Amino acid sequence: MSSFPLPQLTRASAPLTREVLAVNEFGEATTVSIPAERALTVYVDKRELVTLMTLGANPELLVLGFLRNQRLVRSVQEIESITVDWEVGAAAVKTHEGITNVEERTAKCVVTTGCGQGSVFGDLMDEVDSIVLPEATLTQAQLYGVVNAIRLQESTYKSAGSVHGCALFRGEDMLLFVEDVGRHNAIDTIAGWMWLQDPDSMSGADKVFYTTGRLTSEMVIKSAQMGVPIVVSRSGITQMGHAVAERVGLCTIGRATNKHFLCYTGAERLQLQPELAGTRPRVLA
């Protein structure tokens, strides 16, 4: 690994909500909170790369994780600094030695199904076959713990709606919770945070990734790239997300609310405890 130190990051978090007037079903004017979506244009070594739409809670981590999940940088130590300035809506990334063939590697852009319109540079399936996920399991009791922790989590969604949340767990213990206008932004922010931690304590082997959004190919690939072998969603899974998850051996669990869930792929990683699910609902003839 390079001997460069970890990057220098600003801490340019922005207000997550703003208040506006709305009219309710009784014709009454009421003040409500809405998410404060804003544009952040990313420049790498003074070259404009992409504009991300974000809440702006952790913009430096978002940019770092974006570069990681786009496979534009291989190590966090390639980055010298990330400077975010909300007055101009820009994030300036400075690398130590530049990004090799950056024009060629960013020439093809795939627009994904991510809320807020996500995008992935290059072929979605590049390097998927080289991913080897660690051995890991999750018990049904731990899964219920994850779902309950999300239920109890204070969030922008509860006060303002219109955002997605993602979280990283060790077993059923929440390590980080992130919200943004798109789930792809939230997972990128988690990827950036993981990169800044001690690599010995932040491998994906004992981690579970949770998202409120559906499990698309983009979310599955990013989870696998982060080395996290188990993904949980309160939504479902797409056909391509399912195919990729099977290909890399990822455990995908969807429709996870209360004690209900569906394990779509990688069921061998889930240690079932059916007795915890309670009684089946009676079906009337």
Rank of each mutant, 00 (worst) to 15 (best):
R47M: 13
D200W: 09
V23C: 05
V42N: 00
F4I: 01
P7T: 00
G65Y: 07
L196Y: 02
F169Y: 13
V220R: 14
L215R: 05
W195Q: 14
G192H: 00
S203A: 14
R105H: 13
C109R: 10
M53F: 00
N148Y: 14
Q153G: 14
D198T: 08
F121K: 06
L67Q: 02
L52P: 02
L61I: 00
N148A: 15
I82Q: 05
A91Q: 04
A90W: 06
D45P: 03
S223N: 10
A39N: 00
D129Y: 05
R11P: 03
L6Y: 10
G278P: 12
E37Y: 05
A36R: 01
L138C: 00
L61W: 03
A57I: 05
E135V: 05
I131L: 09
N258C: 12
L196D: 05
H184G: 00
R38N: 04
P274T: 05
L52Q: 03
P281V: 04
V128M: 12
R38G: 01
V128I: 14
T238I: 02
A91S: 00
V73D: 04
V111G: 02
Y210Q: 10
R280C: 09
R151H: 15
F177N: 05
G254I: 04
V231T: 09
V181P: 00
I221F: 07
C166A: 15
A256Q: 02
M1K: 11
D206W: 11
K158I: 14
G254H: 01
V248F: 05
L175F: 10
S155W: 10
L175W: 11
G171Q: 10
Q271D: 09
G161L: 11
E179A: 03
H242Q: 06
A149G: 13
N24K: 07
V84T: 04
R170G: 14
V208Y: 06
T137F: 06
V283A: 11
E19H: 06
F177Q: 02
S33W: 09
A92I: 06
I99N: 10
T212C: 15
E60G: 00
L272Y: 13
A141H: 15
P199T: 10
T189W: 05
T189S: 12
V228A: 08
A256R: 06
A90T: 15
E60C: 04
C109Q: 08
M125R: 13
G192A: 00
M1R: 12
I190M: 08
F209A: 14
E37N: 09
E135S: 08
Q117N: 11
Y144E: 13
I99Y: 05
F121Y: 08
I150E: 10
T279G: 08
A57C: 07
G192I: 03
S155L: 13
H242V: 02
R68D: 14
L72Y: 07
V147F: 06
W86G: 03
E28S: 15
Q140W: 09
E48M: 02
E78D: 12
G254R: 04
R183G: 11
C251G: 04
G171T: 08
V208D: 04
T30V: 15
I99R: 11
G56L: 07
G278W: 12
V23H: 03
P229V: 06
L168K: 03
L52T: 02
T106C: 12
E218V: 01
V50D: 11
S162K: 14
G192Y: 03
T31L: 14
Q140I: 08
F177A: 06
P274E: 06
A29F: 14
